[in-house]
Amino acid sequence: MSDDTILLDHGSGGLASQELISGLFLKHLDSPILKDLEDSAVIDNQAGKLVFTTDSYVVDPLFFPGGDIGKLAVHGTINDLAMRGGRPLCLSLALILEEGMALADLEKIIISIAQAARESTVPIVTGDTKVVPRGKGDKVFINTSGIGVVDPTLSLSSRNGTPGDAVILSGTMGDHGITIMTRRAGIALEGNLRSDTRPLHRLVDAILGQYPDSVRTFRDPTRGGVATTLNEIASASALSIILQEEALPIKTEVRAACEILGLEPLYLANEGKCLAVVDGAQADGILALMKQQEEGREAVIIGRLEEGSAGRVLINTPIGGSRVITPLHGHPLPRIC
């Protein structure tokens, strides 16, 4: 590559674009379908229903402890497919690059995408690149779409909750959100704050393999955090959700950062966790199974669904009191003092 930054020429469709595609994208992304460089990918007919999703990634900083924008773009879309019970088949990858972006950063991101796709065994099969003039973007924006297949007898939905169901969280809350916020603020904290970005399709597959009839829904509590997702489930199922504050899994360093910044872990984004609403009678079995998987090692039952005010999420505090948990309003802002 002749220059060390992205030029408008790289998005022109001409020689520079081809150089970028063959010299960088195809060098790292090893899907045979992608290598054909056709206008679209042809995928074999699959048994079952199709699940289809799309998501865009605009995170700042691009690189952070535990991951980067590329990993997020792969894991996030895989997880959206998995939450509906989908077995991910393939992803698309569209990049909007800002003129002047360091090529070395782009290569790091592409390598990370390739690695995440390989580890997830979900190939990138089609893609697109555009370049916008300097100042019209922010280094790189990524969109990924994904297709998966789902067992036609499954219908996971936030509407499916019934009284007595248990809510299981697959691991600690807020790791991703607080990592990004402290990085953005330039706050250095002791301890090991890391994004939790990871694919969840294997965890989902393991649970559905053994308990296909006991899962009401899976949801990944990304932006808005566990609080907002649970409010959506409570509303959709027209039930109350009662949480136990003492059960909430939160890493010490996440709690410490939240104390300093005046934030609540319940509202912070997660990129590698799922909430499973499951038949209360099977909850212990499902929990034990989740804990056997790497992705669910720290899973806990955090609450139950109950009859009561539809759409209300209540938390029982350690002192024996309670409070209402509302969805996130705006974006989380640190407080004055």
Partner: peptide, 14 residues
């Protein structure tokens, strides 16, 4: 901050 803490801990309910 006390206002918020009193709510957050559920003290108003006890």
């Amino acid at each position: 901050t006390h206002t918020m803490a009193i709510f957050r801990t559920g003290i108003r309910t006890i």
